[in-house]
Amino acid sequence: MAWNEPGGNNKDPWGGGNRNNDGPPDLDELLRKMQQKLNGLFGGRGADPETSSGGGSFPWSLVLIVLAVLYGLWGFYQVNANESAVVLRLGKYHETVTSGLHWNPPLVDHVTKVNMTEVRTERTTGQMLTEDANIVEVVLTVQWHINDAESFVLRVREPLKSLQEATDSALRHVVGSLTFNGVISQNRTQVSADTQVRLQQYLDLYQTGIRIDTVNLSDAKAPREVQDAFDDVTKAREDEVRLQNEAQAYANQVIPVARGQAQRMIEEAEAYKARVVESARGEASRFSQLLTEFQRAPEVTRERMYLDAVQDVMSNTSKVMVDVEGGNNMMYLPLDKLAQESATQASQARQVSPQVIDDITQRVINQLRTEVANSRRSRDVR
């Protein structure tokens, strides 16, 4: 039942039972009751409504204390070990703090936390013109981290966009100073190294607070429109390199052999030369000595020279002519035939007894004696 309905006894829920039912509740009285409740809550004595009806003040000091406590708690913040915090006071740079618990006045200072150890990756791709007027499609990956929080937050408005534009500029400068083959195959490492150096120079000049860790040339190829023709050219170059390697391997195999043969022929020629020269010197020395002996005893030397010459000639023949003294007939001994027969007999019978050898010797002697006797008889008859 509402307080102002019939039967409600006109009891004012705000404590104003002695008031007229025509007016609204008294705001001052409501504030005094709230003050009493707050004082009781914080240990203070409640004011007597009878004595305080004449007036009172709201506890603004308590409200200010509560607000001050909340404001102080609001100002605490934690900076992790891998972070740095840039503090702006009234919009102006104040300081850079490292890891730990810090406090700054809220609404006065603005704190921006930056991760200093996180390695981030930026990827760029595009078609670029090389030094020999060819177009190459390049994919580059850049890994970087923040090394200066103040510069990263305050010096550049959009550091990531600046990084992208600086990467593209450095890459185009490096690619434009190399040939097409150098970019795609021969100088890929050089492209990455030169791009990293030039990119870091740009970022330091812009004061971005970014440090480049690595630059990797992920891919470099011809555009899709000419990829088939480029593959044919690449295959032809690979075949050229393969054939050159095979030719070089064959040359490495043949040249040492030829050099060895040439050296052997040179050494044989040198040996022949030395042998001929030494032989000529020996013949000349022998002739000089023979000349000296000939001058001393011409007849004896001439006869000795004749005998030596006949001996040399006859030693190279397999036939023997025997001159019978006082006769015109000469006896011929076919030593080659005898040697052949001896070889045949030896092949037929590997082992010949000494008796057989003596028998053959006796036969030869008897035949020689018979022929000599016949020669003497014929001479006597004449």
Score class of each variant (00 low, 15 high):
residue 7 G to Y: 10
residue 181 N to F: 10
residue 372 V to R: 02
residue 310 V to K: 14
residue 47 A to W: 06
residue 114 V to S: 12
residue 289 Q to M: 09
residue 77 Y to I: 04
residue 294 F to T: 03
residue 251 A to D: 06
residue 11 K to R: 13
residue 131 E to T: 06
residue 24 P to S: 08
residue 209 G to W: 01
residue 292 T to A: 10
residue 316 N to H: 08
residue 327 G to C: 10
residue 221 K to N: 14
residue 332 Y to N: 05
residue 379 R to T: 02
residue 283 E to F: 10
residue 156 V to E: 04
residue 76 F to H: 03
residue 140 L to Q: 04
residue 321 M to I: 09
residue 125 T to R: 11
residue 83 E to M: 11
residue 44 G to T: 08
residue 118 E to H: 15
residue 215 V to D: 02
residue 144 W to V: 02
residue 262 A to P: 05
residue 325 E to C: 06
residue 54 G to A: 15
residue 143 Q to S: 13
residue 8 G to T: 04
residue 45 R to M: 09
residue 95 E to W: 04
residue 242 R to A: 04
residue 112 T to F: 00
residue 190 Q to L: 05
residue 5 E to L: 07
residue 216 N to T: 15
residue 81 A to N: 04
residue 338 L to K: 06
residue 314 M to I: 07
residue 145 H to K: 06
residue 225 E to I: 00
residue 10 N to T: 12
residue 25 P to Y: 01
residue 67 L to K: 01
residue 309 A to T: 09
residue 344 T to R: 12
residue 120 R to N: 11
residue 113 K to G: 13
residue 286 R to D: 05
residue 22 D to S: 15
residue 132 D to H: 00
residue 49 P to N: 14
residue 306 Y to K: 10
residue 58 F to N: 00
residue 262 A to T: 05
residue 149 A to D: 02
residue 224 R to F: 11
residue 96 T to V: 07
residue 81 A to Y: 00
residue 5 E to T: 13
residue 123 R to W: 14
